[in-house]
């Protein structure tokens, strides 16, 4: 029982959920090392294919984890991957809430938390810029129109969000439509 493949899948993703800091991108090499090099469950190509396909479905970007489990062991692998990646956040956040929430009004705790805000925002800003650059440069087949289109989408989107109370989901889908039209016009 303890050597079953489901347990192994569960443990791989449990470990992943503990070391992931930020999104799935930071831990992708680590995950590939386990899935491809260590256990030989998938080939490198299969791993990348799964990652790419996972970009086109909604949900947290960890959404590829149950899918990897599914490719390895079918439905039971899916379940093992799902609970592997999502069970620890439930435990850690439950513990964090239980402890933090009763002490949050202490002046000392308040200062610690305020002190971490610039760090967190700085990190998010840097990953936003890096992500934006990566995705912009591959929007179309040629780099220059791709960047121009991406800047246009970004600036228009920010103004749109500021000027009226636009629903963020509508905005995301509109950006998708613009990207699509741009592709048809430029790449044919």
């Amino acid at each position: 029982m303890w050597n079953s493949i489901e347990i192994k899948i569960f443990m791989v993703f449990l470990k992943l959920s503990l070391i992931s800091f930020g999104g799935v991108f930071g831990v992708l090499p680590e995950l590939e090392r386990d899935i491809v090099t260590k256990f030989h469950w998938l080939t490198h190509d299969q791993f990348i294919q799964t990652f790419v396909l996972a970009q086109v479905v909604p949900g947290p970007n960890m959404v590829m984890c149950p899918m990897i489990g599914y490719r390895i062991a079918g439905l039971s692998g899916f379940i093992a991957g799902f609970f592997g990646i999502y069970s620890m956040p439930l435990v850690i956040m439950g513990g964090a809430f239980y402890f933090y929430h009763r002490y949050r009004n202490l002046a000392f705790v308040r200062k610690l938390e305020l002190g971490l805000r610039p760090l967190v925002l700085g990190l998010i800003a840097s990953s936003a810029i890096q992500l934006w650059w990566e995705q912009s440069s591959t929007l179309l087949s040629q780099k220059f129109p791709a960047l121009a289109l991406s800047i246009a989408i970004t600036v228009a989107g920010i103004f749109w969000m500021k000027s009226r109370k636009v629903n963020a989901l509508v905005l995301i889908f509109s950006a998708g439509m613009v990207g699509w039209v741009g592709h048809i016009l430029v790449d044919g």
Partner: peptide, 11 residues
């Protein structure tokens, strides 16, 4: 791809 640029915008 357009959708992903839209979602970075949220960032």
């Amino acid at each position: 791809k357009g959708v992903s640029i839209g979602s970075v915008l949220l960032f």
